[in-house]
Design a binder for these strands. Structure first.
Lengths: 110, 110
DNA sequence: CCTTTATTTCCATAATAATCGAAATATGGA
DNA sequence: TCCATATTTCGATTATTATGGAAATAAAGG
């Protein structure tokens, strides 16, 4: 992933409501969630949610698919993986830092 | 790391100049860099740089230490590790996604 | 103490992002 | 075709962030 896209992805997640939306979609997995479900779950006005969904979509971190009257949004794990890969590289260059997947995997196991 | 701090860290990195600054500090390693060196390297007005350094410091992603007339800024790897850990968790919850440290480590070896 | 160098703070300005009601669009079904 | 439901777009408003020159602060050394 290229620096520009990295900044866009980071900015997409760097907002409380959007981080919550993304987390909800990650938890929902392949089924995804509709805007309606997110409005309920996160108690946010539809127009506001729509703005944030657009922002996340623009970054490539989520995808959209129509299903009848509803839309289904899903987390785009490949993109998130790309972001993490970039950050891991640019955190750990020459350092014995967070190549620590084992350490990470050990704590806070929820 | 808690959700609030995650958003703050993401926001700190979600800006082209700040991402460059952080990357430069990561590359510089334990020696760190002075604002003067960064002004030279990144060709940015001192006042603008100072604003961004403050932002990064506020997030905990870099630290500051005085050395005579100069200040030395360094990447705070523990904080970055915390951020990566959080993101890894909230990307991969229930997914066989980017627990892929090996995969990541294999490509783009520069 | 005065000067030089390093860096930050102040301040005004410009640019971008977030909020949300109301109107518009899309879809499926009677 | 008309209606109800799901969602987005519009548009106005407010809030936050970024930029950079000029003035202020901090430290070292004569």
């Amino acid at each position: 992933m290229e620096e520009n896209d990295v900044v866009t992805c980071l900015a997409a997640l760097a907002q409380p409501m959007r981080l919550q939306v993304f987390r909800a979609l990650v938890v929902a997995g392949p089924d995804g969630l509709t805007p309606g479900a997110l409005v309920e779950a996160l108690d946010v006005p539809a127009a506001t949610l729509s703005f944030h969904l657009k922002e996340l979509t623009r970054s490539g971190l989520i995808s959209q698919e129509r299903d009848g009257r509803s839309l289904i949004y899903r987390a785009a794990f490949e993109q998130m993986d790309g972001l993490l890969t970039y950050l891991t590289y640019n955190c750990c260059e020459g350092k014995a830092c967070a190549v620590a997947q084992p350490k990470s995997a050990a704590r806070k196991p929820r």
